[in-house]
Design a binder for these strands. Structure first.
Lengths: 197, 197
DNA sequence: GAGCCTATCAACATCGAGTCGAGAATACGA
DNA sequence: TCGTATTCTCGACTCGATGTTGATAGGCTC
């Protein structure tokens, strides 16, 4: 087993262990042992535990972003339907890597690089949502109101927190089988409803 | 200096240091030194670093919760105005203890007790918001739609995430001088707007 | 002044991260 | 096929932090 494979083995071990425990509860020793190497050798491949999670996230982002982008671009005929579909994609993309998402969230508390990477991902989504909102306003389908970007940030951060709560089994949390419906409803009313009732 | 005062001194030191650094970057040594005692003596007062933050949170909750409850109960004439005022209170209550809120959020990643305590606080707010929404529906001012509790959770978690992002200076984040306006608008449209546009 | 709580700390035990330097294994060009 | 350079590996170490133990000192009470 050499080079690349060892790196993969470390990442694989990390993914496996993260399904059960938080990153803080996993030692470099375990990561190394899981990949069949000694602790010092681990440092040949990664500068730290954190870097492994970052690498996992990088990989996920790379894998998912085209899929996600293309899914988001393949606009449904009806923009209202599109909102629902986007949220569904969002939910599935994050939900199928819960352990990693949890680890990244934890890491963001202490690791500036993790924050930067996540921030970049969010920024992309914000830009996309902002455009969509502005397009809907331009064609007269949505009323003008809040600055589109501020609205997009608030809604995306709602998604982020609501889904995170479900993934880490926080209480209170929205029921998982209702979450797409709930988020969609809030998005639609925020975008298409007039601000002053 | 004795007993209670020493305890206060430790908590005071923690609060001061948390304004500059995360809990992870603060050692028990520093906490002890700041309170004028040795490290082992620290353990006479608190079982761990984490416990100090929990104690701070306990104190804040106790101090703030009556103030908050009474402010929330003193219902404004207009329920729409009340939403805005509630969000303002929420913003100010959390915003005036940013360092602590940050520390608690960090801690929640690793500490079950911190999660439990925060969860309890959220649960209280959720119950309150749920009641208000149901009252508005009962009097015919708001349309029926999503289950009130699910909606309340999503909206409160939006507040939580949006404010947290501002406090920790995440990007993207809603502009601080717009945050009350943005959150209020989303709440109002989600509560009073019809779900299907 | 004997007994008993409160408070204190030096010294210890432990654990995990990260480093160093010496070595094996492998590839590779001559 | 034989250096030699590059990749890879780990034993042994340092360092910093957490948490524990056991001995001690002061006060309060009867």
């Amino acid at each position: 087993m050499s080079g690349d494979e060892r790196e993969k083995a470390i990442m694989g071990t990390a993914e496996k262990l993260l399904a059960e425990r938080s990153l803080a509860e996993i030692s470099v020793d375990e990561l190394a042992a899981g990949a069949g190497i000694s602790r010092p050798t681990f440092y040949f491949y990664f500068p730290s535990k954190d870097a492994v999670v970052l690498a996992l996230l990088d990989r996920l982002v790379e894998q998912a972003s085209e899929a996600l982008d293309s899914a988001l671009e393949r606009a449904a005929a009806d923009p209202v339907v599109e909102v629902r579909e986007s949220i569904e994609i969002f939910y599935e993309a994050l939900g199928s890597h819960r352990a990693l998402i949890r680890a990244v969230a934890d890491l963001s508390a202490s690791n500036a690089e993790a924050r930067a990477l996540w921030s970049q991902i969010m920024e992309g989504w914000v830009a996309h949502a902002t455009e969509k909102i502005e397009a809907e306003r331009a064609r007269g389908a949505a009323p003008r109101g809040l600055p589109a970007r501020e609205l997009a940030i608030a809604l995306l951060q709602m998604n982020e927190r609501v889904l995170h709560a479900i993934f880490v089994e926080d209480t209170p949390a929205v029921a998982e089988d209702k979450v797409v419906e709930v988020l969609t409803a809030v998005w639609l009313s925020a975008i298409y409803g007039s601000a002053t009732v």
